[in-house]
Amino acid sequence: MINRFILEKRLKSVVMHLILLSVAATCILPLIWMFSSSLKTQDTIFSNMHIIVSDPHWENYREAWTKGNFGAYFLNSVIYTVSVVGGVVFTASLAAFAFARLNFPGKNIMFYMFLITMMIPIPGSFIALYVLLQKLRLVNTRLGYILPQINAGLALAIYILKTFFEELPKDLEDSARIDGCGKFGVYWHIAMPLAKPAIAVIVVFNAMAVWNEYLLAMLILSSKSLMPLQRGLMVFQGAHITRYPLLMAGITIAVVPIVVLYLIMQRHIITGITAGAVKG
């Protein structure tokens, strides 16, 4: 009987692991294929389908970096990512704290209005956004590129953080007040440290979105000197011909920072997402 129980348990575990392994493979294989392709030449990429490259062309990375002007674009992407993520965390945490812990007229209506903005993807409002930025003289400026992205990231961030802040025990807030904290003190000394998992999720989600953003940059920016990293990748894609080895080398370079960020934040992410999802 016990043997049967153990056998069933092990069988379930094997099946579960097989499923998980196949899911993991579907995620990892494209990355391996990307890396492998980055070491091939333009003609071997179409004729040699092996993942392991016998004659790797490491110079593709150097060429991708220089031809794609990655040096300048990389710095721009860092500026945009830091600014947008910083802007989203700062603004959303203040707004979420207000929605969760303060009482003011129209609170719920305002919150739902924020949520509605989640339903409108940025490309859907491109032309209106362009007209607005043009009137504000923000077209082809860094600020004109950063502000719409902060705006786009706010709704989800407020939603996640609000659920966190709502769970804070009232006693904790009262104790802080007795110790002399004002409203901002409670937010900064009590709420923010406890919301680290949620902030990690917001940081990763927004950093990924900004790092990979391209369409908005094409719309708003004209000067090459202001373009983000993704602009560098476009150099390798023509209307009819794509230089795949260089493109793959470029993408490999581009994904490294975001993968590193994800790995650093990984342990907070599950807590953050589940908390937001279950309690929301």
Binding site: I79, V82, G86, F90, S225
Partner: peptide
């Protein structure tokens, strides 16, 4: 430091830096 960095990065290059 964070606030300074945020505003510095945001404002830096507010215009076309060509």
């Amino acid at each position: 430091v964070f606030v300074f960095l945020f505003f510095a990065l945001t404002i830096f290059g507010c215009g076309n830096s060509d």
